[in-house]
Design a protein around this nucleic acid. Structure first.
Lengths: 188, 188
DNA sequence: TCCTTTATTGACTGATCATTCCATAATCCG
DNA sequence: CGGATTATGGAATGATCAGTCAATAAAGGA
């Protein structure tokens, strides 16, 4: 089904993600992309259309992977509060690599309906899962009962962004860990 | 001291800030800048050097103004906890306009020593002022005493960023208000 | 072996970009 | 008025950019 070492589309996309999350859309050139993806220029255009379509595909793939990772952490402990803790801990541990979601939102806000749709879908899925887990933690008495699960979820996701942004700004590991710890403690 | 209606350098800089905070550095062209600043192209280069120097000047001016506004809010109430509340409330109220500081950090991380120095200076000044206020609030019994003021300050600043990022992502006013409220409540 | 498929690269196009040179106009000061 | 100063905009430069076309190479299947 292939003649010359037919390249892996997903692998190439991952390489593109690596460039975009570091340099953003405007800061990335086609040459940087082909270099990182290790494919020819024409292959890029044949496979992904153009730079913008590639960017959207990268953001979508990144969002899916990131959502999956969050969900896995959330379910990685039997007690709901521990699941929430693992989610925050993972974010702290991986905060050194810039987040494409945040970069994308910073760069484009809500200017692009296409991009916003990708973000909104990922956000909705994640939000729902966290709300459920917060509810469970409340039922278990690990989260104060006067807290609206929706609000608490927004708060946690906000602090996820805060941790990543702090890391991008150069904060040290201790600072990031403190942010994660305080955010979780705020639910108690 | 001037012949043709000698333009106001600070006013022009403010206009440049308006463009940069919306479109970032890479997303902004010289034409967009001269258009918004309402000065000629050559005046821009004569006065500000080049696009990068103008960007740095804009970020520095923005950081100073933003720091001033934070400090004013912090001191805007006699009780320390209320000062902290006013700071958060102001952030919520103004969150609709994108933050140049966040945009700059997202776009460049710590790639530019020049830019990082600007951010670090503003951050240090702000951090110190908030730490002091948190300490006062603790002394007054309005903030739990087991909280490290440094950590609490980092937490508050992180949530400032979270609110602004949420706004950039399209969150509604109620959501932003909830974020501010929860961040402050976390200190209690 | 030959054909088909796939990837790559060079050359090119047209656009846009930042930036500079220069001529011109406008305005204030003496 | 006249000369100094300041802002402006046209023209041009060289670079870079995204994207296309066409030729070529590589490799699997028949």
């Amino acid at each position: 089904m292939a003649r010359p070492k037919e390249f892996d589309k997903d692998l190439a996309l991952d390489a593109a993600i690596g460039v975009f999350r570091e340099h953003g859309f405007e800061g990335t050139s086609a040459g940087m992309l082909t270099g990182a993806m290790k494919i020819g220029r024409q292959s890029l255009y044949d496979t992904f259309g153009d730079k913008w379509r590639l960017y959207c595909a990268a953001v979508a793939r990144y969002a899916e992977a990131e959502t999956r990772a969050h969900l896995a952490a959330l379910r990685g402990a039997s007690r709901a509060i521990d699941g929430l803790g693992e989610m925050m801990q993972r974010v702290v541990a991986e905060a050194r690599r810039p987040c494409l979601g945040i970069g994308s939102i910073c760069e484009f806000g809500r200017r692009s309906a296409e991009l916003s749709a990708i973000h909104d879908a990922a956000h909705a899925a994640l939000q729902a899962a966290i709300v459920r887990r917060v509810g469970e933690a409340q039922a278990a008495g690990d989260v104060r009962p006067d807290l609206d699960p929706q609000e608490a979820t927004g708060f946690l996701l906000g602090n996820v962004a805060a941790i990543r942004l702090a890391a991008r700004g150069g904060a040290d590991d201790a600072h990031l860990a403190a942010l994660g710890r305080l955010a979780l403690r705020a639910l108690r």
